[in-house]
Design a protein around this nucleic acid. Structure first.
Lengths: 194, 194
DNA sequence: TAGAACTCGTACATCTACGTACGAGATAAG
DNA sequence: CTTATCTCGTACGTAGATGTACGAGTTCTA
């Protein structure tokens, strides 16, 4: 290969980059709130025409996947920045406080992707971030801080279900914005505790 | 009024009753598995023609509501039969063991009903059974068995999210059929414990 | 067994969402 | 300024799902 990292014939124009960013942001927000959100909904939320959206994403499935990838990438960032010093419980608390919303959003997007993306592709995408939580839970079990009477795979899942629930309750107005986070974190830690 | 409790001109025929029962059972199963199940899916699962279904339920929304009512009625039964003697934790354990699947099913149907039924109607239907869980949680808080650092409304919700999650994990094959129940019960009790 | 109730296939009208085609006008890049 | 890129409206074709209309055949009920 001649030194080019991508095979793109030419760079995108600046306004195109902007449009794509707005569409992805809107897709993440709308799809997390409603897995059945239409391309029209998303285009309107992004403030662009539907045809502009189709100019950048050929199909709805492609858009859903791109939104998923974007959300997971966004979630990975604070997860990677978390200080891993200290006992597992403390680390988990820090991790959740800094990223529970992003993790919950990714979970909601997973719902939206269910059925439009092949199952294998989903697991593949979701694997990276989930691995991080899983490893921390494993570590907590070895340290004696987390319970060992339930399968690890379930503990990983239940974290997602609780975070998703907290986000949903906040959206529904049954939890105040400020209390949803602490409530979710406390609940998760209670389930994990030995 | 002349003593008639219903205005029905005549009784339904036996085969009609049978059809309705099969349709409702199929609707509960299919909608719990997939909130977007079509009337055709449900009719096929029930082993009746789509037109028969429409003969008994005018619209899809009406069918969803009927399925919801039926599932809630079914869930109410074992809930009402639970022995209330003993401390709140023990009672909650008995209650969950005997009915966690039905409660989880109702939760899944709630998803399906979201958007097709008016929000008020949903809350109205769901109120009865939820009340039962809520009262038990309140009682546990007063007894000192359950935590008081989180809002009761959230504790009620989180019970549902965990049960729903356990059912989903089992369906996905990540939990064995036999272990899903105990896993769900243990997890819920951990979150509720003081 | 006569009649009413029920089943259920086919055909059709409607609606909604996806995705395509075309093209005029706006905007960024060189 | 010139050109390629991008935006985005309108219009169209397609597909799937809902709900209606008709009618022939079947099964309960009395």
């Amino acid at each position: 290969m001649g030194g080019m990292t991508t095979a793109r014939p030419r760079a995108r124009r600046a306004d195109a980059e902007r449009s794509i960013a707005r569409i992805l942001a809107a897709a993440r927000a709308r799809l997390a709130a409603d897995p059945n959100a239409t391309t029209d909904d998303i285009a309107k939320a992004a403030g662009v025409g539907r045809m502009t959206l189709y100019g950048h994403f050929r199909t709805r499935a492609e858009l859903v996947e791109a939104a998923m990838v974007d959300a997971l990438r966004a979630a990975e960032e604070p997860l990677a920045a978390v200080d891993l010093e200290g006992d597992a419980r403390t680390v988990m608390e820090r991790l959740l406080e800094s990223s529970w919303e992003l993790v919950a959003e990714s979970g909601a997007l997973l719902d939206a992707a269910q059925g439009v993306l092949p199952a294998g592709r989903l697991r593949e995408l979701h694997e990276g971030p989930a691995k991080r939580v899983e490893e921390l839970i494993e570590r907590g079990r070895e340290e004696g801080a987390f319970r060992t009477d339930l399968p690890t795979v379930w503990l990983v899942s239940v974290v997602h279900y609780i975070l998703h629930g907290a986000a949903a309750e906040r959206t529904a107005g049954r939890l105040r914005k400020a209390e949803a986070g602490p409530v979710a974190v406390k609940s998760v830690l209670s389930v994990l505790a030995a």
